[in-house]
Protein backbone atom coordinates (compact mmCIF):
# COMPACT_ATOMS: atom_id res chain seq x y z
CA UNK A 1 0.00 0.00 0.00
CA UNK A 2 2.94 2.29 0.63
CA UNK A 3 4.32 2.48 -2.90
CA UNK A 4 1.36 3.85 -4.73
CA UNK A 5 3.33 5.62 -7.42
CA UNK A 6 1.18 4.84 -10.43
CA UNK A 7 -1.33 7.64 -10.77
CA UNK A 8 0.05 9.83 -8.04
CA UNK A 9 0.52 13.56 -8.45
CA UNK A 10 4.07 14.79 -7.89
CA UNK A 11 4.24 18.50 -7.18
CA UNK A 12 7.29 19.58 -9.17
CA UNK A 13 7.45 22.93 -10.91
CA UNK A 14 7.73 22.45 -14.65
CA UNK A 15 6.41 23.68 -17.97
CA UNK A 16 4.13 20.67 -18.21
CA UNK A 17 2.86 21.08 -14.63
CA UNK A 18 1.79 24.63 -15.43
CA UNK A 19 -0.03 23.79 -18.65
CA UNK A 20 -3.81 23.68 -18.80
CA UNK A 21 -5.14 20.27 -17.70
CA UNK A 22 -7.58 20.21 -20.65
CA UNK A 23 -4.71 20.53 -23.09
CA UNK A 24 -2.76 17.87 -21.24
CA UNK A 25 -5.69 15.47 -21.21
CA UNK A 26 -6.41 15.86 -24.92
CA UNK A 27 -2.75 15.73 -25.92
CA UNK A 28 -2.21 12.64 -23.77
CA UNK A 29 -4.96 10.87 -25.67
CA UNK A 30 -3.53 12.22 -28.94
CA UNK A 31 -0.03 11.07 -28.08
CA UNK A 32 -1.22 7.57 -27.22
CA UNK A 33 -3.10 7.34 -30.52
CA UNK A 34 0.01 8.58 -32.32
CA UNK A 35 2.10 5.86 -30.66
CA UNK A 36 -0.36 3.23 -31.86
CA UNK A 37 -0.49 4.49 -35.46
CA UNK A 38 3.29 4.57 -35.86
CA UNK A 39 3.70 1.64 -38.19
CA UNK A 40 7.42 1.57 -38.84
CA UNK A 41 10.53 1.87 -36.74
CA UNK A 42 11.26 5.41 -37.90
CA UNK A 43 7.92 6.87 -36.88
CA UNK A 44 7.87 4.89 -33.62
CA UNK A 45 11.42 6.12 -32.96
CA UNK A 46 10.20 9.67 -33.38
CA UNK A 47 7.43 9.09 -30.82
CA UNK A 48 9.98 7.58 -28.40
CA UNK A 49 12.28 10.58 -28.75
CA UNK A 50 9.34 12.96 -28.29
CA UNK A 51 8.13 11.11 -25.17
CA UNK A 52 11.59 11.04 -23.60
CA UNK A 53 11.97 14.75 -24.25
CA UNK A 54 8.59 15.42 -22.65
CA UNK A 55 9.59 13.25 -19.67
CA UNK A 56 12.71 15.35 -19.20
CA UNK A 57 10.73 18.60 -19.50
CA UNK A 58 8.30 17.35 -16.82
CA UNK A 59 11.17 17.39 -14.25
CA UNK A 60 9.79 14.18 -12.71
CA UNK A 61 12.76 11.86 -12.03
CA UNK A 62 13.02 9.13 -14.66
CA UNK A 63 13.06 6.57 -11.82
CA UNK A 64 9.38 7.36 -11.19
CA UNK A 65 8.51 6.55 -14.79
CA UNK A 66 10.44 3.31 -14.56
CA UNK A 67 8.67 2.48 -11.32
CA UNK A 68 5.30 2.94 -13.00
CA UNK A 69 6.36 0.23 -15.42
CA UNK A 70 7.22 -2.13 -12.59
CA UNK A 71 3.67 -3.22 -11.91
CA UNK A 72 2.96 -4.23 -15.51
CA UNK A 73 6.27 -5.50 -16.88
CA UNK A 74 4.93 -9.03 -16.70
CA UNK A 75 1.96 -8.08 -18.85
CA UNK A 76 4.29 -6.47 -21.41
CA UNK A 77 6.46 -9.57 -21.49
CA UNK A 78 3.48 -11.91 -21.82
CA UNK A 79 2.04 -9.94 -24.75
CA UNK A 80 5.42 -9.91 -26.45
CA UNK A 81 5.90 -13.67 -25.97
CA UNK A 82 2.41 -14.43 -27.29
CA UNK A 83 3.12 -12.32 -30.34
CA UNK A 84 6.39 -14.11 -30.99
CA UNK A 85 4.68 -17.49 -30.79
CA UNK A 86 1.48 -16.84 -32.67
CA UNK A 87 2.32 -14.48 -35.51
CA UNK A 88 3.08 -16.29 -38.73
CA UNK A 89 5.06 -14.78 -41.61
CA UNK A 90 7.33 -15.61 -44.50
CA UNK A 91 10.72 -15.52 -42.82
CA UNK A 92 11.04 -18.52 -40.53
CA UNK A 93 13.91 -17.84 -38.13
CA UNK A 94 13.94 -21.08 -36.19
CA UNK A 95 11.58 -23.68 -34.87
CA UNK A 96 11.59 -26.25 -32.14
CA UNK A 97 8.90 -28.72 -31.12
CA UNK A 98 5.60 -27.05 -32.18
CA UNK A 99 6.83 -23.50 -31.85
CA UNK A 100 7.82 -21.64 -34.97
CA UNK A 101 9.37 -18.20 -34.64
CA UNK A 102 9.12 -15.83 -37.58
CA UNK A 103 10.94 -12.53 -38.04
CA UNK A 104 7.56 -10.81 -38.39
CA UNK A 105 6.53 -12.13 -34.97
CA UNK A 106 9.61 -10.72 -33.29
CA UNK A 107 9.12 -7.38 -35.00
CA UNK A 108 5.49 -7.25 -33.92
CA UNK A 109 6.42 -8.22 -30.35
CA UNK A 110 8.96 -5.41 -30.11
CA UNK A 111 6.39 -2.93 -31.45
CA UNK A 112 3.73 -4.04 -28.97
CA UNK A 113 6.12 -3.94 -26.01
CA UNK A 114 7.34 -0.46 -26.90
CA UNK A 115 3.79 0.79 -27.44
CA UNK A 116 2.57 -0.50 -24.09
CA UNK A 117 5.58 1.03 -22.36
CA UNK A 118 4.88 4.32 -24.12
CA UNK A 119 1.22 4.11 -23.10
CA UNK A 120 2.26 3.75 -19.45
CA UNK A 121 4.88 6.51 -19.63
CA UNK A 122 2.53 8.95 -21.33
CA UNK A 123 -0.41 8.34 -19.02
CA UNK A 124 1.88 8.44 -15.97
CA UNK A 125 3.13 11.78 -17.20
CA UNK A 126 -0.43 13.10 -17.12
CA UNK A 127 -1.12 11.96 -13.57
CA UNK A 128 2.37 12.88 -12.30
CA UNK A 129 2.03 16.45 -13.56
CA UNK A 130 -1.67 17.10 -12.97
CA UNK A 131 -3.40 17.32 -9.61
CA UNK A 132 -6.45 15.02 -9.48
CA UNK A 133 -8.81 17.92 -8.89
CA UNK A 134 -7.43 19.75 -11.94
CA UNK A 135 -7.96 16.60 -13.94
CA UNK A 136 -11.61 16.18 -12.98
CA UNK A 137 -12.07 19.88 -13.63
CA UNK A 138 -10.73 19.36 -17.13
CA UNK A 139 -13.00 16.36 -17.66
CA UNK A 140 -16.00 18.36 -16.54
CA UNK A 141 -15.18 21.19 -18.93
CA UNK A 142 -14.46 18.90 -21.83
CA UNK A 143 -17.70 16.98 -21.28
CA UNK A 144 -19.78 20.11 -20.73
CA UNK A 145 -21.34 19.98 -24.24
CA UNK A 146 -23.16 16.86 -22.99
CA UNK A 147 -25.14 19.11 -20.64
CA UNK A 148 -27.20 20.12 -23.67
CA UNK A 149 -28.53 16.60 -24.09
CA UNK A 150 -29.46 16.39 -20.42
CA UNK A 151 -26.46 14.63 -18.88
CA UNK A 152 -25.38 16.22 -15.60
CA UNK A 153 -21.66 16.42 -16.20
CA UNK A 154 -21.14 18.48 -13.07
CA UNK A 155 -22.55 15.74 -10.87
CA UNK A 156 -20.37 13.22 -12.65
CA UNK A 157 -17.26 15.36 -12.16
CA UNK A 158 -18.11 16.03 -8.49
CA UNK A 159 -18.52 12.32 -7.86
CA UNK A 160 -15.14 11.67 -9.44
CA UNK A 161 -13.48 14.47 -7.50
CA UNK A 162 -14.83 13.11 -4.22
CA UNK A 163 -13.84 9.55 -5.08
CA UNK A 164 -10.31 10.60 -6.00
CA UNK A 165 -10.06 12.91 -3.00
CA UNK A 166 -10.84 10.07 -0.62
CA UNK A 167 -8.47 7.46 -2.05
CA UNK A 168 -5.51 8.61 0.08
CA UNK A 169 -7.79 9.01 3.10
CA UNK A 170 -9.07 5.49 2.71
CA UNK A 171 -5.58 4.09 2.25
CA UNK A 172 -4.46 5.89 5.39
CA UNK A 173 -7.50 4.65 7.27
CA UNK A 174 -6.95 1.08 6.07
CA UNK A 175 -3.32 1.19 7.16
CA UNK A 176 -4.32 2.55 10.54
CA UNK A 177 -6.96 -0.09 11.17
CA UNK A 178 -4.61 -2.81 9.94
CA UNK A 179 -1.93 -1.60 12.35
CA UNK A 180 -4.44 -1.44 15.20
CA UNK A 181 -5.59 -5.02 14.58
CA UNK A 182 -2.01 -6.19 14.13
CA UNK A 183 -1.27 -4.64 17.52
CA UNK A 184 -3.90 -7.03 18.87
CA UNK A 185 -2.15 -9.94 17.20
CA UNK A 186 -4.15 -10.19 13.97
CA UNK A 187 -2.18 -12.23 11.48
CA UNK A 188 -2.85 -11.23 7.89
CA UNK A 189 0.18 -12.53 6.06
CA UNK A 190 0.07 -16.23 6.67
CA UNK A 191 -2.26 -19.13 7.30
CA UNK A 192 -4.79 -20.95 5.14
CA UNK A 193 -7.03 -19.21 2.61
CA UNK A 194 -10.00 -19.42 4.97
CA UNK A 195 -8.11 -17.89 7.89
CA UNK A 196 -6.85 -15.11 5.64
CA UNK A 197 -10.35 -14.29 4.45
CA UNK A 198 -11.46 -14.29 8.06
CA UNK A 199 -8.61 -11.94 8.91
CA UNK A 200 -10.08 -9.33 6.54
CA UNK A 201 -13.28 -8.97 8.56
CA UNK A 202 -11.71 -7.00 11.46
CA UNK A 203 -10.44 -4.52 8.87
CA UNK A 204 -13.41 -4.39 6.53
CA UNK A 205 -16.12 -3.71 9.09
CA UNK A 206 -14.45 -0.70 10.76
CA UNK A 207 -13.56 0.61 7.31
CA UNK A 208 -17.15 0.36 6.06
CA UNK A 209 -18.52 2.00 9.17
CA UNK A 210 -16.08 4.88 9.00
CA UNK A 211 -16.75 5.36 5.27
CA UNK A 212 -20.46 5.71 5.91
CA UNK A 213 -19.77 8.12 8.74
CA UNK A 214 -17.42 10.13 6.54
CA UNK A 215 -19.95 10.28 3.71
CA UNK A 216 -22.59 11.63 6.09
CA UNK A 217 -20.21 14.24 7.47
CA UNK A 218 -19.14 15.30 4.00
CA UNK A 219 -22.74 15.66 2.83
CA UNK A 220 -23.54 17.77 5.89
CA UNK A 221 -20.46 19.93 5.40
CA UNK A 222 -21.31 20.49 1.73
CA UNK A 223 -24.88 21.43 2.56
CA UNK A 224 -23.70 23.79 5.27
CA UNK A 225 -21.75 25.61 2.62
CA UNK A 226 -24.87 25.82 0.46
CA UNK A 227 -23.82 23.31 -2.17
CA UNK A 228 -26.78 22.63 -4.43
CA UNK A 229 -25.33 21.10 -7.55
CA UNK A 230 -23.73 22.61 -10.60
CA UNK A 231 -26.22 25.22 -11.72
CA UNK A 232 -24.86 28.76 -11.53
CA UNK A 233 -21.74 27.65 -9.67
CA UNK A 234 -18.63 29.68 -10.41
CA UNK A 235 -15.02 28.71 -9.77
CA UNK A 236 -12.25 30.21 -7.75
CA UNK A 237 -9.60 29.20 -10.27
CA UNK A 238 -11.08 29.07 -13.73
CA UNK A 239 -9.06 27.29 -16.36
CA UNK A 240 -7.34 29.50 -18.89
CA UNK A 241 -5.36 28.40 -21.89
CA UNK A 242 -2.02 30.19 -22.26
CA UNK A 243 0.99 30.33 -24.55
CA UNK A 244 2.18 27.10 -22.92
CA UNK A 245 -0.79 25.24 -24.31
CA UNK A 246 -0.09 26.69 -27.76
CA UNK A 247 3.49 25.38 -27.52
CA UNK A 248 2.31 21.94 -26.36
CA UNK A 249 -0.32 21.68 -29.07
CA UNK A 250 2.06 22.88 -31.76
CA UNK A 251 4.80 20.40 -30.83
CA UNK A 252 2.27 17.56 -30.66
CA UNK A 253 0.93 18.62 -34.06
CA UNK A 254 4.45 18.58 -35.51
CA UNK A 255 4.98 15.12 -34.04
CA UNK A 256 1.79 13.82 -35.65
CA UNK A 257 2.78 15.33 -39.00
CA UNK A 258 6.24 13.77 -38.69
CA UNK A 259 4.78 10.37 -37.86
CA UNK A 260 2.38 10.48 -40.82
CA UNK A 261 5.17 11.52 -43.20
CA UNK A 262 7.49 8.77 -41.95
CA UNK A 263 4.66 6.23 -42.15
CA UNK A 264 3.92 7.12 -45.74
CA UNK A 265 7.40 7.66 -47.18
CA UNK A 266 9.62 5.14 -45.38
Amino acid sequence: MKDLTFGQYLPYDSFIHKSDPRTKLLLTLGLIVTAFVSFNFYSLGLVIVFTIMAMIVSKVPISFYLRSLKSIWFFVLLTAVLNVIYIKGDNLLFSFWIIKVYAEGIEKAIFIAIRIALLIFISSMLTYTTAPTALTDAIERLLSPLMKIGIDTHMFAMMMTIAIRFIPTLIEETNKIMSAQKARGANMDSGSLLSRVKAIIPILIPLLISSVRRAKELADAMECRCYHGGKGRTRMNSLKASWRDAVCTLSAGLLLAGVILLNVFL
Binding site: I177, A180, R184, G185, P202, P206, I209
Partner: peptide, 24 residues
Amino acid sequence: VFQYPEYQLFDETVEKDIAFGPRN
Protein backbone atom coordinates in the same frame (compact mmCIF):
# COMPACT_ATOMS: atom_id res chain seq x y z
CA VAL B 1 -3.84 1.41 21.94
CA PHE B 2 -4.16 3.61 18.87
CA GLN B 3 -5.63 7.07 18.65
CA TYR B 4 -9.44 6.95 18.52
CA PRO B 5 -9.37 3.20 19.18
CA GLU B 6 -13.17 3.02 19.08
CA TYR B 7 -12.92 3.00 15.26
CA GLN B 8 -11.28 -0.41 15.33
CA LEU B 9 -14.19 -2.18 17.07
CA PHE B 10 -15.73 -4.72 14.73
CA ASP B 11 -17.22 -7.78 16.40
CA GLU B 12 -20.83 -8.63 17.15
CA THR B 13 -20.54 -8.14 20.89
CA VAL B 14 -18.28 -6.16 23.17
CA GLU B 15 -17.21 -9.43 24.78
CA LYS B 16 -16.07 -10.94 21.48
CA ASP B 17 -14.28 -7.75 20.52
CA ILE B 18 -12.30 -7.64 23.76
CA ALA B 19 -11.53 -11.35 23.28
CA PHE B 20 -9.97 -10.72 19.85
CA GLY B 21 -6.45 -10.18 21.22
CA PRO B 22 -6.46 -13.06 23.73
CA ARG B 23 -7.93 -15.37 21.07
CA ASN B 24 -5.07 -14.46 18.72
